[in-house]
Structures are given as C-alpha cells and as structure tokens.
Write a protein that binds this DNA or RNA. Structure first.
Lengths: 197, 197
DNA sequence: ACCTGAACACCGTTCAAGT
DNA sequence: ACCTGAACACCGTTCAAGT
C-alpha cells in the first residue's frame, strides 16, 4: 500500500524493464498488462497512458532490443583490431551471443506480429544492422579479403547466415552444444562465401 | 443449430484446418479456442477432448507445418534433374517458397514457445530437414562440387543460410521485392560457401 | 467416447471520475 | 498530466452431467 506511485513519468520505463524481465523468466505467454501493473503497484488501467495497446508495449520492447543489439555490435567493432577476419568474427560472435543471451527477446524482435505503425521503426532498426554488415563487407573489399561486387549482394547473404544460425540456436533446432561447436564451421563458411575468386 | 456435430472423430482435424486458416488470415493473435469452436458449431469445451491445451493445438499445428515442408522439399528433390547445382537450387527454392507462402506458420514452427513435450517431436522434424540437406551435400561431395569434410560442418551452415533468408523474408526485414531479387545472390553465396578449394 | 453447460479466474480495453 | 475504479466483452480451463 506504500508502494511507489510513479507520477514522475518513469512508469513507461518501469513497464518496459519489468516486461523484459518476465519475458525472459516466464516466456512471452506470461506477459500480461494487468500483472505488470500489479507488479509495479499501479492500477491495471495505468499502462494504457503509456502504451495504447498491449501490442504497442511489445513493439517498444522489440525496438529496445534492436537498439541494444545495435550497441553490442558497435561495441564489438570498436573492440576489434585491424584485421578483417577478426572484425568479421567479432561481429558474428556479438550477434550470436546476443541472441543466446536474449532468446525470447530476439524471437519477439523478428516476430511477424508487429503492427504496421511500429513495423516502420523496426524495419529501420533492422536496416541499421544490415548497414553495419555492409560497412564491414566494404572494408573487406578494400583490403581484398572480400570479392568484388555490389556490397549488398554480399552483405545480405552474410547477414542472413548470421541470423539463421542465431535463430536456430534460439529456437532449439541447434542445441547449446551444437551452437557452440558449430560456430567455427559457420564462420569458415561465411568467409568462403564472401571471399575472393 | 443444424450444424454438423462431428461425432466422427474429425473434430481434431477440423480444428487444425480452421486454426491454420485463421492463423493465415488474421494472424496468431486472433487464434482463440472458443472462436474456433464457435466457427465449427461446437461447444467451447469440445476442443479440450482433442487438445489438452491451447499450446497443444499450436504444437500440433507447427508439427503439421514441418510435415508439409518436408513433403515440399522431398517433392523438389524428386522433380530435380541430376545436376547438383540444380538440385541444391530447387531445395533452396522450395524452402523459401514455403516460407513465403506460409509466413505465419513458419513463424510458429520456429517459435520458442513450444512445451517440452512437443519440442521433442518438433526438434525431430527439424532434424529430418537437416538430414535432407546433409544428403544433398553428400551428393555434391561425391560429384566433386562440394568440398571435402564432415557433412554436418557443411550442411549446417548451408541450411542456416537458407533459413535465415526465409526468416528475413517472412519477418519483413527483406521486402517481397528484395526477397525475390536477392535469391540469386544468396544462392551464389551458398555455392561459394560449400564449393571446393 | 464424445460433447454440453455452467462456473471460475483471468484477460485487454474503455471511460468517467478523481488528484 | 497522470492515475483510479468500475464496467464490458472476451478468454482458457475444469468438471459434473448428458447422449
């Protein structure tokens, strides 16, 4: 009864934080606006001030996921050395690690359910990731470690492999052990796929 | 009031058929056991005789999806000629076409939500697909069009690329046009990734 | 064996009203 | 501006009872 009241405008942030926590711990099916409101000590109608819809909250969650993935990939790039293969390897690693550490969130990010309003922002976020892959490929072309040709026609398949591997790891098609032991094979295959001649 | 009664045991099949229809037409959020029952002129408690859970129905739907994908891939193999690249190309085509024609179903098939009971059967279904990719790769090795090495270390990345591309097409990361125009680039990249030397 | 009808606890969403 | 409380229509699930 003496719980915080959240008149400060941080209810929105609190809802997102808590939602991601229950998504991670109990899965997407357990996400309920009413329970979120209960957990935060707020009336069940309060969330509607910040998210017009349950879908709107899910959209915001997915968008936050893209932003964090973006940061993780940027960080991996900044941490890498000069060598192209190291940089590419770090990029792949960062994506796969994020996927495995945020399985439910990744599932949500790439789910089909997003409303057309949010899809725009989500697709833009996805394209930012694709652009990062494109920069990496362009670097590789300049150093001669990636074959000539339109950047997108190389970066798209590379990114696609990356995502497929992460998706298989997340959905359980690959077990945790297979995902770990298969990384090198996937990376070697990616190098072959984009390498010269 | 004079609707069919389904005492024949075909309620289970009717539920699945109808469920897939509304999944396709109105999306996963619109799937409700009660509405399904209503649509089929049956009491709202009737489905529970055939599916202990809503999740059990979703699991069955996903499993049926894997079976149909399996058939589509088998059919593509039987329809293909002798040449390895044609056979591989047909395999990739069949997977991508299935994905684009059954977007919501593919999303469900690879979703993370499946109960541990069903996961076993679903993972087995996924592994059957992987085995088909493995056979194809082994053929390519025999004809010298795929490089030497453990079959799985080549088939897994190939299948992964396939799935990543399909997943991007389904989730809207790639527009319909990009998915169409990007196919050749992806296929060329797959050939490079598994090719010799 | 298969289905019905009522019951229960829980949703998402809306809206007047409060502060 | 932000939140509450009541209300509405809809769920999934269970269980006695019917055929």
């Amino acid at each position: 009864m003496h719980t915080r009241r959240y008149h400060h405008g941080d209810l929105r942030a609190a809802l997102l934080t808590r939602a991601e926590q229950t998504l991670r711990e109990k899965g997407p099916g357990a996400l309920s606006l009413r329970e979120l409101a209960r957990d935060l000590g707020v009336s069940h109608a309060a969330p509607s001030r910040h998210f017009k819809d349950k879908q709107a909250l899910l959209d915001a969650l997915a968008l936050a996921g893209f932003e964090r993935l973006d940061e993780a990939l940027s960080a991996s790039r900044d941490a890498a050395g000069e060598a192209f293969t190291d940089r590419l390897r770090g990029f792949v690693r960062a994506y796969v690690d994020f996927a495995r550490a945020n399985a439910e969130l990744l599932d949500l990010m790439y789910t089909i359910k997003h409303g057309p309003a949010a899809s725009e922002a989500l697709i833009a976020a996805g394209q930012r990731l694709g652009a990062m892959a494109g920069e990496l490929v362009a670097e590789g072309q300049r150093s001669g470690e990636v074959r000539e040709g339109p950047v997108d026609s190389i970066a798209m398949p590379v990114f696609t492999t990356l995502h497929g591997f992460a998706s298989f790891a997340v959905s359980g098609v690959l077990s945790a052990e297979e995902a770990t032991s298969g990384f090198d094979a996937v990376f070697a295959y990616i190098l072959r796929g984009c390498g010269p001649s």
